[in-house]
Write a protein that binds this DNA or RNA. Structure first.
Lengths: 195, 195
DNA sequence: TTCGTCATGTAATGGGTTACATGATTAC
DNA sequence: GTAATCATGTAACCCATTACATGACGAA
């Protein structure tokens, strides 16, 4: 996961560890975080295995910055990791990291992953709704608020996936404003089927 | 975390491992999951340390079910764990688990935790927004969709917290329908301050 | 000069997950 | 009788986090 993310980001442009962490926080931050304690060792590991290499600081002397660049071996490893772990539909965070590299996958693979994720969330949602019905009367207000929040979160997540799936089928890219997308999704899904 | 959750749930009523996992999935499922591989060992650990004890199956013979009950020592441990880890405002999942046991905390502690969580999310949000501005033009549509989703998720989370905080201040409990609450929150918060 | 951020790193520590294995019970 | 769900457990494995330590640079 970590290695996949590192390679994917370095594919975009060469960076040093600190920048990688920042980049992750600013884009994936809501779903996934890296700590230096795992980032730097991972970078060294990848370097030893030849997947990345250091760019020697020609300019920018004085300040010690280890800029890494992905190698050809790294590109290969990236593709491998991206494919291999493709069944991780559950586990929030992992899915989203993978999604950040969707453009490197074939359209069919993309749709498949999106749909498996959707099915997973749908399953979770019905579980949560079942729980809601079952405990509604018996449970304290905090847990109740939590359950409600969980249901809404999951619903939002599913709507978002629906948009991505729709865009993918159209062959287009998601360009609409979030507000429009929300309305479209609300109109589209029947919601409330399955027990 | 795991032990806190186990003790808190057993405080409510005695259960066996399987039921505990189910209960977690049906209430906290959107934020946290337990696996048997950690649950059962934890249960044994707690039993050995005297925090829980087995209720011998008087009825229900034949089928092997290990029903656990919290002990007095367990109650003490629960309180300790609940207090101790109170600074975990970040780390999604942990906060929500803790929230499920809010009724066992003093109102001031509750508000404090809610507000620290809010501040944390606000920080994350501004980081995400900064990222959005910075990468908007340069980044692929999937990552962009992800970033947008992350922002919306976080905003929703903050609105939810605002409701909880408001209810807490009122001394009342959150009883409104989610839809009403959403409207109320939207009207209340200025949103969009801080860079 | 001092504070905040940039920047790297390590060691101890502490979880957790996956896969496997087993068997009873219930519903069809 | 057979498939699904209930129910418990272990071992191997694979991560990650926290805390600590260091130091340069830029702005006030």
């Amino acid at each position: 996961m970590l290695e996949l993310a590192i390679l994917g980001l370095l594919k975009e442009r060469s960076m040093h560890g600190y920048q990688l962490k920042k980049r992750v926080a600013e884009t994936l931050g809501a779903f996934w975080q890296v700590s230096y304690g795992s980032l730097y060792p991972a970078l060294k590991r990848l370097q030893r295995s030849g997947a990345v290499e250091m760019v020697f600081p020609t300019e920018d002397v004085g300040r010690r910055k280890n800029v890494y660049r992905i190698t050809e071996a790294g590109e290969a490893l990236f593709q491998e990791l991206l494919q291999e772990t493709g069944r991780e539909t559950g586990e929030d965070g992992k899915f989203q990291v993978r999604l950040a590299f969707f453009r490197y996958l074939k359209p069919e693979t993309r749709i498949g992953m999106l749909e498996r994720r959707r099915a997973f969330l749908e399953g979770r949602l019905s579980e949560l709704r079942r729980g809601f019905k079952e405990y509604r009367e018996r449970i304290d207000s905090y847990t109740l608020a939590l359950m409600r929040h969980g249901v809404e979160f999951t619903e939002q997540d599913i709507r978002w996936l629906d948009d991505l799936i729709a865009a993918e089928r159209r062959g287009a890219r998601v360009k609409r404003s979030p507000r429009t997308a929300r309305r479209a999704a609300a109109a589209r899904i029947p919601q409330k089927e399955r027990a």
